[in-house]
């Protein structure tokens, strides 16, 4: 029995115009200035939270490239995040590599893993892909606990990672930079590099090819876009960036363990993307803020019902702001425009 279905149905992800994917130079500079100045005035714990915020922002951005640009789903980003974290941790603790140098390796390992996972994923779309990646995320913690790798991964116990000190240049210049502060600025630098690379990637030929696939796969292939190559490439790039975020996360938390990378993390990253606005890269920051800070707020409102409060907030966002933070930013922009005219 076979059914014929028209393909004209709506794509899985609403299309985002290419120009709308990044912020203007002015807004970017203001946000950057805020990101640089704020940590100078707050406590170490808040600096640590801000570091985690940036790290999650990188991971959300990676998912945004996959879903927002190439239109593929993933509920399995936590698996790549875990892979990156373990790569960094093992290199630092067993091999003794400098923490900064472990990040490119983590990115590369995850790029390859993502590319390979992208191959079977080619045959799946929409909800099936969500399902396959969901299964990947669920299976990951158990794979990490396997006895075979225990020598390297530390099994259930995980690995403790040493927190890096600030380079000695600062001390010789008479500046006192705490470990948290240094790690924050290090993360910020990595975030900026990744953000710029991603914006450029989406502006490039490859980025346009991915967006063509997202909007209409058949039309794209008719135009000569190599659909399988760009789809797997998007998976690889996304996994690679997630891996870098995972490596940074391992360094910041100073600890990796299988139960830190459950399906909860994958779902959180997915929600971060929805809240930030699918396909809008700066939204990753807003989405990551949602992941890091809203559970705290929910816990404040009601301890026992924090899950319910979280869910209700999410539903409110879906209903009122289906395009997430992007809609908010655009609303603000047009409001400012109107005020200027008067």
């Amino acid at each position: 029995m076979s059914t014929v279905q028209d393909v004209s149905a709506a794509p899985a992800v609403a299309a985002v115009p290419k120009k709308a994917m990044a912020l203007g130079p002015m807004a970017s500079l203001i946000i950057l200035a805020l990101l640089i100045v704020t940590p100078l005035f707050v406590k170490n714990f808040i600096i640590f939270q801000m570091t985690m915020w940036l790290i999650y922002a990188i991971a959300v951005l990676a998912l945004n490239i996959l879903t927002g640009a190439s239109g593929q789903f993933s509920l399995g980003q936590s698996a790549f995040y875990a892979l990156g974290a373990y790569t960094s941790a093992i290199l630092m603790e067993h091999v003794g590599v400098n923490y900064a140098l472990t990040l490119p390796v983590a990115g590369l390992v995850c790029f390859i893993a993502g590319f390979l996972f992208g191959l079977p994923a080619l045959r799946l779309s929409g909800i099936y892909l969500a399902l396959a990646t969901f299964a990947l995320a669920v299976a990951m913690p158990q794979l990490l606990k396997l006895g075979v790798f225990e020598h390297w991964t530390g099994g259930v116990q995980g690995l403790v990672v040493t927190k890096p000190d600030a380079p000695e240049i600062f001390a010789s210049m008479g500046l006192k930079v705490s470990q948290d502060m240094w790690l924050y600025f290090f993360t910020l630098a990595v975030t900026i590099v990744i953000y710029l690379l991603s914006v450029n990637l989406l502006k490039s030929r490859s980025g346009r090819a991915m967006m063509a696939i997202r909007d209409n796969e058949i039309a794209a292939s008719a135009m000569g876009v190599d659909v399988s190559l760009y789809k797997t490439l998007a998976f690889g790039v996304s996994a690679g960036i997630t891996g870098v975020a995972g490596g940074l996360g391992a360094i910041a938390v100073q600890f990796v363990a299988p139960d830190g990378y459950t399906i909860q993390l994958a779902i959180a990253l997915f929600l971060g993307m929805v809240v930030g606005g699918v396909g809008w890269l700066p939204g990753s920051l807003a989405g990551a803020a949602f992941i890091v800070f809203v559970p705290n707020i929910a816990e404040h409102i009601s301890k026992g019902l924090s899950g319910a409060v979280f869910g209700v907030i999410l539903i409110i966002i879906i209903f009122l702001l289906p395009n997430g933070a992007r809609q908010l930013a655009y609303g603000a922009q047009s409001l400012i425009g109107k005020l200027r005219k008067h």
Binding site: A12, T67, G311, V312
Partner: peptide, 14 residues
């Protein structure tokens, strides 16, 4: 879009 539905299911789950 499908994406919004998945987010809705997750909210319901929580």
């Amino acid at each position: 879009p499908v994406l919004t539905h998945v987010a809705g299911f997750i909210a319901l789950f929580a």
